[in-house]
Every structure is written in structure tokens, then in C-alpha cells.
Write a protein that binds this DNA or RNA. Structure first.
Lengths: 354, 354
DNA sequence: ATTTCCTATGCATTCGAATGCACGATATCG
DNA sequence: CGATATCGTGCATTCGAATGCATAGGAAAT
């Protein structure tokens, strides 16, 4: 014979969303108090082995699982970390997402992902991130100062990834984009290249700015002041197209510096398939990032390696450390980019190109 | 002169995590009840314009934001959707994550991302997903039957992506992998290819199985029963290496069917750079997915297009629809794969290869 | 057998927002 | 001017788990 309770449940409307068992349900079934059930799932709790086993058995029979929401509400700790990424980052560095996920999950955290079209469209995501009591935030996009202050006021630790934020309230990890840009300028100049062009990313993309501006500044120091440059959306197709537009009206340049590898691949294909130029005999091409395709023999792209997985792991541990101790001094890590010499550019010391 | 309250805050320990303003704080400051503050943020609430403006002003001054946790607890609706993806999916179809994120975010939902190394390592993520009261789940990995039943029991709508689940409890959307596999077999056979090999994904990867098994079955129907096949981890490097192992001990085959494009790119490079075989004159190569690189002139890979962004959007709307109405009949959508003919395979009717 | 002590358990409160209900104030009508 | 409807607000409860405090019960010590 069922109790009234059971009858109630059986006769409830078929469309009613099934209710999950709560600690009260388990407590009632086990003949103990709710607090005792709660204590079953804490390691340090003082509870007799007998009761614990009894309750655990019943809990598992009923399919009971703690409710993370209720728990977070009372403990003031959600174990959820927000991650903000741009469309570009997802497409260009998918590995980053996976590495962040692994690192955070292994430390017992969950990942609240916010995707944004670009750095300017971050508003709605930040609003969401505010309403959700996140334990921390890893941001791979630019964030306005006042938002940073708001998060800081609420004690939400933040780590910026490839965005150097000028604030003592947050941690940063970034590649040394500028340093690598200079390095490339030096390498090209030393190898005798004098007529150089640049294929940038979007006008306001910080990463592209840093890379290309440093390159141009260093070249200017070498006396090479005029460097034809074109902006793109960072994609293969746009790189190919705009490069063709750029060189359409000029003498063939010696070398091209591209703000990322996708662009460089586009430029390579433009040279090979549209212009009939040989690489690197006719023109040197250098990219940035060292994505998987750059290493393939069809492209063999000379580029700067961005150790994205290492950086992701570092970002995660920076954040976890600060969650553990909010009073840590702000840290800003700058990772050097390694120049990977393949065969898309003549970099060896030699006679200047004809 | 500060009030006592202010003094308290200033003298509190520097390590104390700052407390965010609650609806009670706002209520006190505005001289109203907490319930009135709460009503300010609901559209349908009956509240005078005057009070609303007054409260909203104070709320914004105090930097008040609703607490999504507390709200979800009482409304039984979290507006958070779980997404489970494998490492392979992230690497191979990063676009999927972005498209899902966009679709879900535009509908007012947030994304709870769980990354898993492969289909077998899904357990921990499912545990997390259970504890979190998610409004729904999009799963791009295989899930054991009993877990599916558990989620269903709790009324969590689920959509499987590229995993055909034999359960009336969930929705599915998947490419017609088998159909496309057969299609490729037909195309190759019709073009005269008789000596064919396969480069598969991991032994137990469902997607690889469907594609390759259907291909082999169809070939068998044509009387081509023995098809040398090798398993890989789905990566470029493994594809290249294992293909070389495979063909090392045999006469050059007419054609290769690869379970995905990464593998096909590896095979192409193996032919070109390791074996010196011309494509497609010496050998036809067909891939699967139509990733970005497949379309580039350096590869010009003939492949099956998987419309991943469309599929992601469909998956999101399937889920949102079911969240809105749990009694919808289970739907299983099978998307046809379009054969994209580029120049890595001879498919035109012609004389059989020498 | 009595006291002491400790362990295991229950009780009550808390986290922050949503909401049904009651009630007071104001507007509307006869 | 009084009766009634309407609108706005407050009160109290709820969601589900965690935890400080009180206490019952048993074991150990005397």
C-alpha cells in the first residue's frame, strides 16, 4: 500500500517536470535529519560509519545528487570559472579552450563559457558574468576599465589572456607580441630584405597592433620608414584577397609580415596560385602563432610559436592561485615567442635579394 | 564623516572577500521591502513608475545585480545549458562551439561547457552536469544508457549531436555519415577505382565507424571485398604516418578514403612529400567534413561537407523547443552530406586507372 | 554506580531572490 | 459621502544544502 505521498506523485500531471530528490527526501526515507544527509557528503564531518552507509545506500537508490546551486548559495563558492573568448580565438586557437577546460576541470572547477563576436561586443557577456557568482574569470578579450573595477569590487579574481591590462587588480599572461614583432624585423633586415609589406588583422585588434607596430617601429629604426600595410579580418580568405589588392599596384616586395598564420597561408596561396611567385626565392613570408597547418610541408611557414597550451595552463593556475589567496600581488607574465624557421622565408645571412 | 556602516566596511580585514549588494541592501537603502526591489526587475510586475525609478537609481548606484543562483533556486530554471564536447570536436570543429554559444546566448541562455578527452572519459562531466540544475544538455559524445535515463528522469532535455542514440527520450541531430560513406564508394567505383584503402579514426569512434563501415559495405556489394584499412587517432600526423605504414608493403592503390579531412591532408602530404605520387593522377584521395583547409588550392580536397554551423543552430533550437515544451515527440534529424568535388580525386566517368 | 567526556545527531538559521496573499491607500462610481 | 474596485506595497514563505549550537546517548574512567 502506497502512502499519500506516493499517490500524489503518481497522480501528478504527466507534463509536470519530474522533481529531483532533495536531501530532505533522502532524510525522510532514511529516518534522519536533513543535516545528517548533508554531512554524509562531507569528508571531515563527524558521522558514524553505519549511518553514513545507510544513508548513502538510500541516496544512491533514490538517485540523489547534491544541488550545486543551493550549495553555492550557502557556501559562497560556486566552483565555476567564467571564460570569455572571441570568435577569432575559438577559430584560431581551439586548443586554448580545451586546455583551459582540462586545467580547470582537473582542479574541480566547471567552465562557464561566454563567446563574443569581437572585443567590442563583450557587454552582454559581462552582464551575465556579473549575475552569476563566478569564482573567477579568464578573459581573452579587451574589457573596459569600469567593468574591471566592478568585478574587482566584488572580489572576482581575473586573468587576462593575451590582453595586457594596465590595472593592478588583475593578473595577465600574454605573449611578447611586440618583442617577437621586433625580432622578425631584425631577422628580415639582417637577411637583406628592404622592400617589405605588412598584412595586419583588424584595425583595433590589440594583438595585431602590438605585433605589427613593433615590427614597423623596428624597421623604421633601420631606416625603412614606408611599409605598405593592409588591414584584414584575420582570415585566410581576407589575407589572400587584400594582399593581392595591395601588391597589385606596386613592384614586387621582398618580404611580407603577416599578423597571424591564417593570413600568411592566404598570402602564400596568393603568391603561388594567383601571382606565380616562388617562395622563398621571389618573396619571403612570415606569419605568427605557429598553428598546426604552418608546420605542414605544403606551407612550411616561418612563424613565431605561441605556446598556447602552456599559456592556457599557466592562466588557469594563476587564476586558481588567486582564488585560493586573493591577496596575492598582481602578476603579469610575458611569454617569449620562439621564431620557428621553416622555408617560407630566406633568413640566413646572405646577399640581399635582387 | 562616515557612518558606522562605512567604518565597519573600512575596518574589515583586507582579506575579507567583498560582499556584493543584495536585494535586501537595496531595499534598505531605498526604504522599501525586498519584494519590491525584486519586482522592479520583472516586466509584468505591478509597481509604480515612481518607486521603480527610485529603486533602479539606487540599485545602479550600489552596483546591484541579481544573483542568478538564488533566482534559479526559486524559479527552478537556471537558463544554463550544458554542452559536452570531445577534444576531437574542439580541434576539428571549433566552429561548432562558437555557433552553439551564439545560438544559446541569443536565446538568453548561458553555456556550461564540459570538455572530455574522448567518449569513454565522459563520467566525471556527467556527474557535474547532474549536480548542476541545467535546463538542458547538448551532448557531442556517446553517453551510456543509464545516464540518459537518469537525466530523463530528472526532466533534463537532451540533444545528441552526431551521435545517434537509440532512445525515445532524447532528440538527435546527425549527419548521414553512412549515406555519405556509401555515396563515396559509389563515386569511386563508378570512376573505375578498384584497389582502394581506408584510413579510419579510432577503433571505437562512432562517427568513424559509420563512415567507413558503410563505405566498405557498399564496396563489398560491388564485389570489392578486401579493403586494407588502418586505424588512427584522427590526426594529420597519424594519418600521414599510418598511411605510409599501410602502403609500404603493398602495390600502390587507386584511391584512399579517409574518415576525416585531417587524415586526408596527412595522406595527401604523404603521397606528395614522402612517396612522390601525383594527386589525382596516381591516386585519388577523399576526405570527410570539409574543414577550411580542404578548400585551399594547396590541397583542393574532394570531401563531404558537414554543415556544422547549420547543424549547431538546429541542435540549439531543438533543445530550446524541448525546454519550452517537454512533451514534444522525440525528433531525430539526419542531415545529408554534400559531396564537394575538388581535384584530389578522379571522379568523372572515364577509363579505369592503369 | 556515578561522573566525565565525547561522539553522533537534530534543530534552527542562513544564503538571495521570487511570489501568493493580505492589506492599506487611492481612485471611481452611485 | 460612503461603497467598491484597483493598484501598489509589505509580510511571510519557499527553493535546497551547509553549519553553529545544543543535546542525547554511549563509552570510558573512577
Amino acid at each position: 500500500m502506497g502512502t499519500d505521498d506516493e499517490m500524489d506523485r503518481m497522480h501528478s500531471s504527466p507534463t509536470a517536470r519530474p522533481r529531483r530528490a532533495t536531501s530532505y527526501d533522502v532524510a525522510r526515507a532514511a529516518g534522519v535529519a536533513q543535516s545528517t544527509v548533508s554531512r554524509c557528503f562531507k569528508d571531515d564531518a563527524k558521522i558514524s560509519a553505519k549511518t553514513r552507509d545507510h544513508i548513502l545506500k538510500i541516496a544512491s537508490d533514490m538517485g540523489y545528487t547534491g544541488n550545486a546551486l543551493a550549495r553555492s548559495l550557502i557556501t559562497q563558492r560556486s566552483n565555476v570559472v567564467g571564460v570569455i573568448v572571441t570568435a577569432f580565438t575559438i577559430r584560431n586557437n581551439p586548443e586554448l579552450i580545451y586546455a583551459l577546460g582540462e586545467a580547470l576541470q582537473n582542479a574541480g572547477n566547471s567552465l562557464f563559457l561566454m563567446v563574443v563576436e569581437n572585443d567590442d561586443a563583450i557587454g552582454a557577456s559581462l552582464q551575465k558574468a556579473m549575475e552569476y557568482p563566478l569564482d573567477g574569470l579568464i578573459c581573452c578579450a579587451q574589457m573596459p576599465e569600469d567593468w574591471i573595477r566592478q568585478f574587482a569590487n566584488r572580489g572576482v579574481p581575473m586573468v587576462f589572456f593575451n590582453r595586457l591590462v594596465d590595472s593592478s587588480l588583475v593578473d595577465c599572461i600574454t605573449l611578447d607580441h611586440a618583442g617577437a614583432g621586433r625580432r622578425i624585423a631584425e631577422a628580415l633586415y639582417r637577411a637583406g630584405h628592404r622592400s617589405v609589406v605588412c598584412v595586419r588583422g583588424p584595425e583595433r585588434a590589440p594583438v595585431s597592433q602590438l605585433r605589427v607596430d613593433a615590427f614597423r617601429d623596428r624597421m623604421a629604426e633601420f631606416g625603412i620608414g614606408s611599409i605598405p600595410t593592409v588591414c584584414t579580418d584575420f582570415s585566410y580568405a581576407d589575407g589572400r584577397r587584400r594582399f593581392l589588392d595591395l601588391v597589385g599596384g606596386m613592384k614586387r616586395p621582398d618580404a611580407v609580415f603577416c599578423a597571424n598564420d591564417q593570413l600568411a597561408l592566404g598570402v602564400i596561396d596568393a603568391c603561388r596560385f594567383d601571382l606565380g611567385w616562388r617562395i622563398p626565392e621571389d618573396i619571403s613570408i612570415i606569419g605568427f602563432d605557429d598553428i598546426a597547418e604552418a608546420g605542414r610541408p605544403s606551407y612550411a611557414l616561418t612563424t613565431v610559436r605561441q605556446p598556447i597550451v602552456d599559456m592556457a595552463e599557466t592562466a588557469a593556475s594563476l587564476l586558481l592561485a588567486r582564488i585560493g589567496d586573493p591577496d596575492l600581488p598582481p602578476r603579469r607574465i610575458m611569454v617569449p615567442g620562439e621564431l620557428i624557421e621553416r622555408s617560407s622565408a630566406r633568413l640566413a645571412n646572405g646577399s640581399p635579394p635582387a
